[in-house]
Amino acid sequence: MMEFKQQLKRRIYLGGIYCVVVALLVILSRIFDAENMAFAFSLGFAIGIEFVAFYFIAKYRAALRDEKKLKLLYIEENDEREKHISYQIGRTGIVIILISLSAAMLITVHINQIVFFTLLAATLYTAVIIGILKIFYNKTI
């Protein structure tokens, strides 16, 4: 459990750094009046993530103060059925994504070449990542 406590402290620390960086970006964007759409979207996205980070920081701090909450959080994160579900989601999800991308590719090749090549790149990238992960886990497990 000590290791888990250290892990939570590290997460709080990293979450804190992220929040400070985003806050600085917000201030800098105001000072330099950065108003273009791409930057505004990126900043809005980062602020959204920051709210999620706040939630988790509060959750981890509460767990570090209360042993029962800490144990519940540990169980929640290490429950073997949850891990099994995540594994199943990954396995099924990747097949669905590959089939969907391939189907979309076959449709867009008749409509728009840019979209077709983008989807082709995404499909190949996904397939390469799966291949690399398969080799990696075959060697490490």
């Binding site: 169980i75 290490n78 429950d79 073997e80």
Partner: peptide, 14 residues
């Protein structure tokens, strides 16, 4: 039981 063996109640149910 779930707390004692370190899993969630849903795991024991399943």
């Amino acid at each position: 039981l779930a707390m004692a063996v370190g899993v969630t109640r849903q795991t024991i149910t399943s």
